[in-house]
Design a protein around this nucleic acid. Structure first.
Lengths: 214, 214
DNA sequence: TTGCATAATTAACAGTGTTAACTAAATTTG
DNA sequence: CAAATTTAGTTAACACTGTTAATTATGCAA
């Protein structure tokens, strides 16, 4: 029955419309200011309609979380072309930082906020963060390739991967939450340029440190 | 006038009482569940009384932020006794991680939440995060001492300090926000112990990496 | 045409931070 | 000493928030 399919498509459409509206508000005013009522107003439906398509607000947070990872993986995909594993690792780190700078709201919902993780645990306790693991798998492979090329062979692959992730996440999260605002000036009072390049500088320091481990 | 002083003390007392009540609720149920109305109920005053002693909720968040740093500095203080700078750095990292595990709510208000930082920027734009800078200064000194002892001499002191901070902050923040819950199991499916010691393991890996830089 | 499932709505609950207007008590002033 | 004024705290209200139960409208099959 064609009509039923059209209905189905309409339903999928509305779910997508809700997410689009949520995304618009979200990138414009941040997650905190993105209320269910505002999303409803944006698509000109009643607030309760949202609940026919999303369980609760954390469900929407998780949907945005997934959208963010979609964008993020797009950026990482092209880095597969970088042949040398160590240079690929460097490119991944740079891409990670650039993504956080370009899309701070998405970064927040992907790596800082509790809400999407709470949704996973309470509504889908069986599975465990597929988005994160998928990206981390790519990092594992690159780290492993580095080790095969002779880099940091005396450190565990997983430890090295998570360590590298931590360095860039530490940088990006402290930057986004505003904890670097004053630190940057203090670090380089007479060097204006450093204020803006603190993230790059520290990441480069890390790469310099692990480069020596060959 | 003795009465005036007693009044003053009472006023200070009430401000302190509010903070104590806020702290109680905060460590028991987390910041999100700590509403102004609940704080008021706890001390048996009307909600609007809170606003006579704190500008707004972010002001209270900042007060809790300061309380957290008080606790934190207590733990760091004893580490001054560790003579060898590299071992002192290791002890600082361990203490940082242990603090985050023992007081996740305080850690959140100190290093993850936007609200206290927003308070500083909007209500006191002239000064810039004294708590963070004070702790970071201690780290600078230890890193500098390490460099004088021959460690990582080819990296800038500030870069190395912020890098080290980033490593432990990355670990603690991802742990607290729940982003490590599933990762830990994936990393060591047949090693149960690792699930609990992921933070220590990765931190040790970092120390191993920078130890080689002598 | 009647009955039924579905989609969307209205109304309401229980809460949130915050402000303006008001009361009662204490203190200063004439 | 009485009047005026400052201070501390309260009540009531505004404009929101997420969420649920009950209700209406709509399109489909028997």
């Amino acid at each position: 029955m064609g009509i039923r399919e059209r209905k189905e498509r309409h339903k999928e459409n509305l779910k997508a419309q809700i997410l689009e509206a949520a995304k618009r508000l979200f990138v414009k005013e941040g997650y905190a200011a993105t209320s269910i009522r505002k999303i409803a107003a944006e698509i000109e439906f009643s607030p309760t309609t949202i609940y026919l398509y999303y369980k609760d607000k954390s469900d929407i947070a998780y949907a945005l979380h997934q959208e963010g990872f979609l964008l993020f993986r797009e950026r990482l995909a092209v880095l597969e072309l970088v042949e040398h594993p160590f240079e690929r690792l460097r490119a991944m780190g740079k891409a990670y930082i650039q993504f956080a700078l370009d899309h701070p709201d998405f970064y927040e919902v992907m790596f800082i906020m509790r809400e999407p993780m709470d949704y996973l645990e309470t509504h889908h306790p069986e599975q465990d963060w597929p988005e994160g693991e998928r990206v981390l798998d790519g990092l594992f492979q690159t780290i492993h390739a580095c080790q095969q090329a002779g880099y940091f062979t005396d450190i565990g692959t997983q430890e090295m991967a998570i360590l590298s992730w931590n360095v860039v996440h530490g940088l990006c999260s402290l930057h986004i939450t505003g904890h670097f605002r004053s630190i940057a000036e203090k670090c380089a009072p007479h060097q204006d340029f450093k204020k803006d390049s603190l993230l790059e500088d520290v990441f480069q320091a890390y790469m310099k440190v692990i480069e020596r481990m060959k």
